[in-house]
Nucleic acid binder design. Sequence first.
DNA 1: TGAGTAACTTACCCGCCCGTAATAACATGG
DNA 2: CCATGTTATTACGGGCGGGTAAGTTACTCA
Lengths: 206, 206
Amino acid sequence: MAERNARRLTAAARRAQLIDVGRAVFARHGYEATSVEEIAESAKVSKPIVYEHFGGKEGLYAVVVDREMDYVVRRIAEAIATGSPRERLEQAVLAFLGYVKDHPDGFAVLAHGAPATSASGGMSSLLNDVAERVGDVFTSAFKDAGYEPKAAPIYAYALIGMVTSVGQWWTETRKPSVEEVANHIAALAWMGLRHLPKQPTLTSRR
Amino acid sequence: MAERNARRLTAAARRAQLIDVGRAVFARHGYEATSVEEIAESAKVSKPIVYEHFGGKEGLYAVVVDREMDYVVRRIAEAIATGSPRERLEQAVLAFLGYVKDHPDGFAVLAHGAPATSASGGMSSLLNDVAERVGDVFTSAFKDAGYEPKAAPIYAYALIGMVTSVGQWWTETRKPSVEEVANHIAALAWMGLRHLPKQPTLTSRR
DNA sequence: TGAGTAACTTACCCGCCCGTAATAACATGG
DNA sequence: CCATGTTATTACGGGCGGGTAAGTTACTCA
């Protein structure tokens, strides 16, 4: 086992590299418009390697999506673990926008949606899975507060839609810092347009 | 000019039919995964006709998108023509959700986004164009109200994201009426989670 | 009725892209 | 230095889908 030549990686290393490269390419062109050749070429490798590791385009895509979903859900779950409802909201928004900033490719993949999986419409964006989990949180919170639990999904999807849409816009401009953007979104969601502060700030420590 | 046989339409009629059919197919599979053959077959016509009328897949898609954009923007513009800020917000949400209900295929096309036009990322969803127009409205309103106009796009994208995301969810469940959903969204956007009413209603007449 | 035109079809080319079979380069242990 | 397993490549089959050329059917009007 001499010094590792640039070419010829171990199976695990190559696999990891392909996931990274695949995520980047999928992020640029979307699932359909991405060819396995482009991924292979982008990884300085020939096609069959991709097939050996993932069985095909769909396999690689599934792994990329799965990992990204796991990551973003964990990141948000940590953010809303403690604090008052308002603080949790703020931290959730901040966590999501932080994810958008730190992992733009992953966010693009999740936001662009799936390979139109066979039967029926099915929702486009993968973030709906996230939305459903958020919906569960809202449902129980609504019950405790005496609200109609049937309306919980509406608010869950509304919140997810807010951060997703703004996140996509932010990846293009990158102008105000994510913290500043998070301030505005959290203010909108918590106070509403009616009581919008001129200079919103988070209430949470940190 | 006898009674029109089912086959053999006039150029204008065929063109109109192809736009309808194309919108439906694009809505189901997205741009990339849609083949011209499928559109032609779905319209009981052979491929070259599509090419004669629109020059190709992209041409038809462009026409479909353009018409849909025009329609939805006009519909929203009418809704926010008059009233207090709050009433305008409520009517805008209601108008958008009404569009989602009445034109699910058009909404799906707009929500799913574009053919990943060549160079650069570019935003996926076509609704960003709508968002920009909304942003203009917000910018001037913000100036008048003494708010930071730089933050206007944030709120514009947040609002668009809300209704888009909820709209997508609604097309799947179709459970609460659009009016009811609009009540909730408008309440969230105007009052915020802080002062959420138990049973939200619109303030507007009608 | 027959020329002329508008609507439409069949048949094809070509390139791309998924997926695979056969094979080669490299490493490592005996 | 050869045996064995692992990593990678070249080369190809097959199919689909965009786009076009040439020919065909129906409809109109003098």
